[in-house]
Amino acid sequence: MTGEPLLSVADLRVVFPTRAGIVRAVNDVSLAVSPGETLGIVGESGSGKSVTAQAVLGLLPLPGRVVGGEILWRGKPFQAHGAGVRGKEIACIFQDPMQSLNPLMTIGAQLVETLRHHARLGRRAARDRAAELLAEVALSAPARRLDQYPHELSGGILQRVMLAMALACEPRLIIADEPTTALDVTIQAEILALLSRLQRERGLAILLITHDLGIVAGLCHRVAVMYAGRIVETGEVDALFARPAHPYTQGLLRATPTLEAQSERLVSIPGAPPALLVPPAGCPFRTRCPIAARPCETLPDPARTETGMVVCWRAGEAAWADIPR
C-alpha cells in the first residue's frame, strides 16, 4: 500500500498477569492500516486479535497491559496528539451490540451525548444530527428510534446505532471487533454491506477483526492471520487466499466452505491452540502442524511473500496435501 499509514503498530506485546502465571496474549504484533483501506485480522478465539484492537484503543480489560512495542497514529504516538484521537479519529463497534449501550439511556441520549462532546453542538442541533446519522445507517423512522431504549431494539438495529454513534465522531478509522458475530446471518450481510458503503462514501479505513474468512474475503483489502498471539501471515486478500503460505492459513482455508468446493467435505484443523500461559518454544503452531520439523523448535524470522510476509520455516509447502479430507 502506498502513502503514510494512519495507524501503525510495531512489535506490540500485551500480557495478562493471572493467578496461574502471566498470559502472553499478544506477541510482537506489527500491522499498519492506510487511509481508505480495510485490514482484516483473522484467527480463532483466543488468538489475540481482539486484545490487539483493545490495546490500540487503550481499552484493555483489567488486568491486561501493554509491555512492549509502539502504536503510532499518523506517525506519532497517541500522547503526541492530545486527548482527542481515540473516540474521535478512531471509532469502534463491538461484538455484542445488546451489551454495548447503556441500558438506562435512550438511543438518542447516547448519540446526543457523543455528538455534543465531539462537535460541541447545541441540544437541538445534536438531536437533529443524531436523527440524520440514524438515517445514514439506513434505520427507518429515525426520529422515533431516538426515544427508544436499547432493550426495545433488536441486535441488528442496535449494531446500526453503534455504527451511527461511531460516525458521530467523524472518524478516519473504524475498528470493528467481530461486528456481526452476535447477529443473524441475513442481518450480518446487511451490516457488512452498510460498513462497506460507508467506507466507500467516506473514505474510511477499517480494522476488521473476525474469525470468519468469508467476511474477510468479501470486505477486506489486506489480511493478517493471527495464531496464539502472533501474526503468522499477512498479504493482500486475493493473493493470500489463492496461495496461502503458512500451514495454519492453509488449514483455515481448508476449513472454510466456499461455493466452488461445496461438494467436498470440510475438515477442521486437529488439536487446539496452545495455552498462552506456557507457550511452546519455537513456532506456536508446530504442535498441530502436519509438516512440523526440527527447525520449527525455534521461531523463524518473517519472510517476504508476494504481497506480505509469513512466519514459517516451511512456508509455501502444501501442508495438508496428503492428508485426506
Binding site: 495478562f16 498477569p17 493471572t18 493467578r19 483489567l62 488486568p63 497491559r65
Partner: peptide, 14 residues
Amino acid sequence: EREKRFGWSKTARR
C-alpha cells in the same frame, strides 16, 4: 471472583 481479585490487585499496584 478469585481471578478478578488477583488481577485487580496486580493492576492496582501498577
